[in-house]
């Protein structure tokens, strides 16, 4: 069950700020880990916009999630520079290592693997982010260590 009272508390912090919807969605996501469907009515009501408009914004930005993510979140850049430095092969390896397909969450909920287009660190491609921490020049070998290291 989603605690909608908590959601309303978050929403109320942003409704008077111009362009506060994006901030609010980040706020909701930081509390719940994603933007639960159950909060959309309250967000729409708070900002006095329609449910469709809220949905339009959430669905536009890949970083807003509509379902719970894994405990660990791994994001691999798929943009041009990283691609040229082997990010596609790396992605396939990471899928095998983690046992989850790209843009999915493992059934046990332990890990999510996500696509990113550019971390702005192209000089040191390919880039992988693990739980918010960016790692440059990642290979399949050091990825395994990194994942474990993060776990340790």
């Amino acid at each position: 069950m989603v605690n909608t009272d908590k959601a309303v508390e978050v929403i109320n912090q942003y409704i008077d700020i111009p362009g506060g919807l994006l901030e609010c969605l980040h706020g909701i996501q930081s509390v719940f880990g994603f933007v639960p469907k159950e909060t959309i009515d309250d967000i729409a009501d708070g900002f006095n916009i329609s449910r469709a408009e809220v949905h339009g914004v959430i669905s536009y930005y890949h970083d807003f999630k509509t379902s719970p993510r894994g405990k660990k979140v791994v994001r691999i850049c798929q943009a041009e520079a990283c691609q040229s430095m082997g990010s596609r092969d790396l992605t396939r390896r990471v899928e095998e290592i983690l046992g989850v397909k790209i843009d999915e969450t493992r059934v046990d909920g332990a890990v999510s693997l996500e696509t990113v287009y550019c971390f702005g660190n192209c000089a040191l491609s390919p880039n992988v982010e693990i739980d918010g921490k960016l790692h440059a020049r990642v290979t399949s070998d050091n990825f395994e260590k990194l994942v474990k290291g993060e776990e340790a």
């Binding site: 329609s50 449910r51 469709a52 408009e53 949905h55 669905s59």
Partner: peptide, 21 residues
């Protein structure tokens, strides 16, 4: 003035959606 429709997603995946899809 109902604001019932939106564009869901972005780029090639974008589509017209009613409400929350």
């Amino acid at each position: 003035g109902t604001f019932a429709l939106t564009i869901d997603g972005r780029g090639f995946d974008s589509k017209i959606a009613a409400g929350t899809d």
